[in-house]
Simulated scan of single mutants.
Amino acid sequence: MQLTGDRFTSETAVFGNDLATLPDFPAEIRAPAGSLPGVSGFQVHFADHDILTPGDQPNVLVAMNPAALKVNLGDLAKGGTVIVNTDAFSDRNLQKAGYATNPLEDASLSDFHVHAVSLSSMTIEALKEVDGITSREAERSKNFFALGLMSWLYNRPIEGTLGFIDAKFAKRPEIAEANTRAFKAGWNYGETSEDFAVSYEIAPAKLEPGTYRQISGNSALTYGLIAASKLSGLPLFLGAYPITPASDVLEQL
């Protein structure tokens, strides 16, 4: 989820929108899959004008399982759009998320525009002719299917993401092919499905001319630590557990 969120952010920056992001990492190390503490998310706020925060109330929520829906639904603006992976709404997953009934079948989502999409099964179907990948690897490509769908919904450029996939997974070309096919399948689903009546266009922001850098909070922290050490003349020591999100800081230092 962090990887695909970062890709959406990169394409949005290249397009020229102003933006701010808020990666949301699981609250527990090795939390059980499908549990509330194990939810990972990525929030991005972008517009054709100056953006100062990641935003308090998202307009669109993509929920890959019941736990993600339960954790994040309270932040979504009333009247907002919910895209859910229906394949993950099994009795077991609903129970792990603390749902007594299926929110897709009762009236609990009546304040939102709900799009029920079989993300997992459509991804697996799109990858059935890709050789050399396991069923688990095929299912994991659903995040790129979701990225393709969101890229279509907001008319994001796709060339950079396709190039990124090839470079990122160059050592495993079968995974690169799987993620590329999943991404394109998501885009095509948005283009051809009658479930999505509209897509959105956000014009580039009017930014001051100059050279801009996309920087994450971890990178900013790294640069700040190095600058503080240099300016103070004191040695820099960082003690951290090597796991997301701290790993980036350790690697960059």
Rank of each mutant, 00 (worst) to 15 (best):
V117E: 11
R140I: 12
A176Q: 02
T123M: 06
I165F: 10
D91G: 04
T101K: 13
E129Q: 15
R136W: 03
T134P: 03
L119E: 04
D87F: 12
G98I: 01
F144S: 03
I165G: 03
P173L: 08
E137G: 09
A88S: 15
S110I: 11
L153D: 10
D91N: 13
F112C: 11
S135G: 02
V114W: 07
N93Q: 13
E139S: 11
G148W: 02
L149A: 12
H113K: 15
R136G: 09
A100Y: 02
G98T: 04
V117L: 11
S108Q: 04
D91Q: 13
K128N: 13
L109H: 09
L162D: 02
P103F: 10
D166S: 11
K128H: 13
A97D: 07
K142G: 00
R92K: 14
N143T: 00
T101N: 14
V130P: 02
E139R: 09
A107C: 03
L153C: 07
T101F: 05
L153W: 11
A107M: 08
N85D: 15
L147A: 14
L109A: 06
R156S: 13
T134H: 01
E139T: 06
G98L: 03
A88I: 09
V130M: 00
N93R: 05
P157M: 13
I158A: 07
H115S: 08
F112E: 09
S151R: 06
T101W: 01
T86D: 05
D106E: 12
A167P: 02
